[in-house]
Design a protein around this nucleic acid. Structure first.
Lengths: 191, 191
DNA sequence: AAAATTGTAGACAAACCTGTCTGTACGAAA
DNA sequence: TTTCGTACAGACAGGTTTGTCTACAATTTT
């Protein structure tokens, strides 16, 4: 119909294929040729929309950031009760892990794939995690706890670490059973 | 002098170069050619000692497991006081991070580099983390706490998650300041 | 001294990588 | 009708990858 639409269809097809492959196989094991084959797109079309593989990686991370936060918010904000919302972080993990393609945090995985010197990629990952910590801080704020200030930021950091640790643990052991325990720990930390 | 020695010298040089490169650059960004160049060894010598790159990776992980646990034990067992020992886990992290080449957990990084289907590598990582959890459990045991049984395994898991989460956090933010906070959290969890 | 073991040097093969290029097609807009 | 934007197919270049191969050297064992 309109070229606007058809143009972004091709770009979208590429980005979707790349997202799946980068996440499931890692960046370096995924070649451009595989991406365009799975996206069913010509190589020239790929280089029309993206100027390099690294550029594609940046686009992948930016979109992944949007998508993932959308999923997280959807699960957390299912309830209106502040404590339930906070614990919803871990309910989200349970659901996420249930996905057959779960392979841990896309951002931590990408960081592992590159040496420390890829600042452009690193920066995206740091931004993502900053946003996650800010979101947790917001959830903790809404609890309306009357702890001393310092303790609150303590609490945020502890919950963040538990969250991150759980993702890593799930990536290796592929089981959700201990998440219930973690939820208990968080409940205890608050009271 | 003896062939035992000279044979293992070549192998050791290769393994040392590979360890450094795999850890700092990741597996796929490190080529065999770079490994043998930095080890100052001929390619045929490499394939005399290792039958493939993946084989080298396995050797790398096995040695890394030994080395890393050695470092951890050395720091933790510096004190004879059970609580100090447990908290020593996080003192170890502070020292480890101070190394200029710190780039997070070698085992988690390797897992990120491979798709889930590399079972041989995955198994090594799982074994490593099993050993870490067992070690933490042992440290918690020696505290002689009289919590109910269930709570103790809870506690072990929580400390493990905090440990893992802290490693990831350090890999991104490259600062040790919040480790002190984590130590406080652990202290609070125990009492 | 002869033979076997252990290791070295580096050319080579075959496959793969990213990225470029040429040339074509087709709809929409000017 | 011409021009522009988007997309196609696929050959190609230049470089890298892992892994093999042959020939040679040093040392140890027989």
């Amino acid at each position: 119909m309109d070229r606007q639409n058809s143009s972004s269809n091709t770009r979208t097809k590429i980005l979707e294929a790349a997202s799946r492959l980068f996440y499931e196989q890692g960046y370096h094991l995924t070649g451009i040729n595989q991406v365009i084959a799975e996206a069913d797109v010509a190589k020239a079309s790929f280089y029309y929309h993206f100027c390099s593989k690294e550029d594609l990686c940046v686009a992948y991370l930016e979109q992944r950031h949007q998508d993932w936060f959308g999923w997280l918010r959807e699960e957390v904000e299912r309830s209106r009760e502040p404590l339930e919302r906070l614990l919803g972080l871990f309910t989200f993990l349970e659901r996420w892990l249930a996905n057959s393609d779960f392979r841990g945090c896309a951002f931590l995985n990408i960081i592992a794939d590159f040496p420390s010197s890829y600042h452009r990629i690193r920066q995206l990952v740091v931004s993502h995690k900053d946003a996650l910590q800010a979101y947790i801080a917001q959830l903790v704020d809404h609890l309306g706890c009357s702890d001393s200030d310092n303790n609150l930021s303590h609490l945020v950091n502890t919950i963040y670490l538990l969250f991150e640790g759980t993702i890593c643990q799930c990536q290796m052991y592929r089981t959700t059973e201990f998440i219930q325990d973690t939820r208990e720990t968080v409940r205890k930390l608050i009271s």
